[in-house]
Amino acid sequence: MALFTFGTPAQRFAKKFNPLRDTVYDADAMFSGSRMSADLAALEPLAESVGADSAELADWLWLQFVVFRKRQLHTEGLPLGLRALALRAAKGGLTPTERYEQHYALGESALEAEDYDTAVEHLQQSSHWAAHEGATLGIDQKLGIREEIGYALHEAGRFAEALAHNRQLLADAQSAFGSSTDERLSGLINNLAQNAYELGEHAQAQAWLQQRLALGQASQDTDIVLDTLFQLGVLAHETGRPAEARALFQQRVDIARTKDDEDLLEGALATLAEFEEREQQGQPG
């Protein structure tokens, strides 16, 4: 009598898992995220049966993480991704590019889940591996990862660390761009102002904002100019300089009048009116 064999657990897993994996990673494929999550969940016992430290289980965990991420279910997916990468790292063999990409995906998901300390950890790892000679990223991408680290540090309430990190990043970015007025520095300088503000260093925050304003004026970027004038106005109001605050908010109105943009002007006038109302009521900013 012939014996029928249905293959090893790994073979049975691959037969069911591989089509799902191929669908998820096919840029042109359309699928239901909730249905895909359910199909993958049904495979969990089979993945576990292959082995608690198996590559199959790591692959299952990572794909479910990817699907949860596509569905914006970051809190649910993040633990799966963390476990998957831990299994893969323990086995070794990941290339620098794979390490950069997977740490970055986890860092981004942690940001969305507002798990900022975890985001810092994995974005730092991503930055480390992105700097490896085996990883092919441009300077803008590498600096972008580091800027996200600074953001995560700030959101984690680690303001002094964020300030130190962003100071070094600004120096490196200025060197890379060959300019201290490159428009790409705007967000980073704004982050430095926010770091300083949270540390109670209001004069330094004002100095960073003035630097950002000069950058916006040099590049003729109205959005940067108006946003920075707004922040300077709020800071002046909060630190007991109402005349300066009024002048800054009025400057926003004057600029908006020159742009032939009714929405822009309406917004600037509304901000000035709100400031005047707060001043009359003696409210802080």
Rank of each mutant, 00 (worst) to 15 (best):
Leu73Thr: 08
His74Ser: 15
His74Phe: 12
Thr75Gly: 14
Thr75Asn: 11
Thr75Asp: 04
Glu76Met: 13
Glu76Tyr: 05
Glu76Ala: 13
Leu78Phe: 09
Pro79Trp: 02
Pro79Phe: 12
Gly81Lys: 00
Gly81Leu: 09
Leu82Ser: 08
Arg83Trp: 10
Arg83Lys: 15
Ala84His: 01
Leu85Ser: 12
Leu85Met: 10
Ala86Phe: 14
Leu87Met: 15
Arg88Pro: 02
Gly93Asp: 10
Gly93Lys: 08
Leu94Gln: 12
Leu94Glu: 08
Thr95Asn: 14
Pro96Tyr: 11
Thr97Cys: 03
Thr97Ser: 14
Glu98Gln: 12
Glu98Ala: 00
Arg99Cys: 09
Tyr100Ser: 01
Tyr100Trp: 06
Tyr100Gln: 14
Glu101Val: 04
Glu101Lys: 14
Glu101Gly: 07
Gln102Glu: 09
Gln102Gly: 02
Gln102Cys: 03
Gln102Pro: 00
Gln102Ile: 01
His103Asn: 07
His103Asp: 01
His103Ala: 01
Tyr104Ser: 06
Ala105Met: 03
Ala105Lys: 04
Leu106Glu: 01
Leu106Ser: 00
Gly107Tyr: 05
Gly107Ser: 11
Glu108Met: 12
Ser109Thr: 05
Leu111Thr: 01
Glu112Gln: 13
Glu112Cys: 06
Ala113Ile: 01
Ala113Leu: 07
Ala113Val: 06
Glu114Thr: 06
Glu114Pro: 05
Asp115Ser: 05
Asp115Trp: 03
Asp115Asn: 15
Tyr116His: 10
Tyr116Val: 00
Tyr116Gly: 02
Asp117Asn: 10
Thr118Arg: 09
Thr118Lys: 04
Ala119Pro: 08
Glu121Asp: 03
His122Glu: 04
His122Lys: 06
His122Gln: 14
His122Phe: 11
Leu123His: 04
Gln124Ser: 13
Gln125Arg: 13
Ser127Asp: 05
Ser127Cys: 02
Ser127Tyr: 06
Trp129Cys: 04
Trp129Phe: 15
Ala130Gln: 07
Ala131Asn: 05
Ala131His: 05
Ala131Tyr: 04
Ala131Leu: 08
Ala135Arg: 01
Ala135Pro: 01
Thr136Phe: 12
Thr136Leu: 08
Thr136Asn: 08
Leu137Thr: 05
Leu137His: 02
Gly138Asp: 06
Gly138Asn: 08
Ile139Val: 11
Asp140Met: 14
Lys142Ala: 11
Lys142Arg: 15
Leu143Ile: 14
Ile145Met: 13
Arg146Lys: 15
Arg146Ser: 15
Glu147His: 14
Glu147Ile: 02
Glu148Trp: 15
Glu148Gln: 13
Ile149Cys: 02
Ile149Trp: 06
Gly150Pro: 05
Gly150Asp: 08
Tyr151Thr: 08
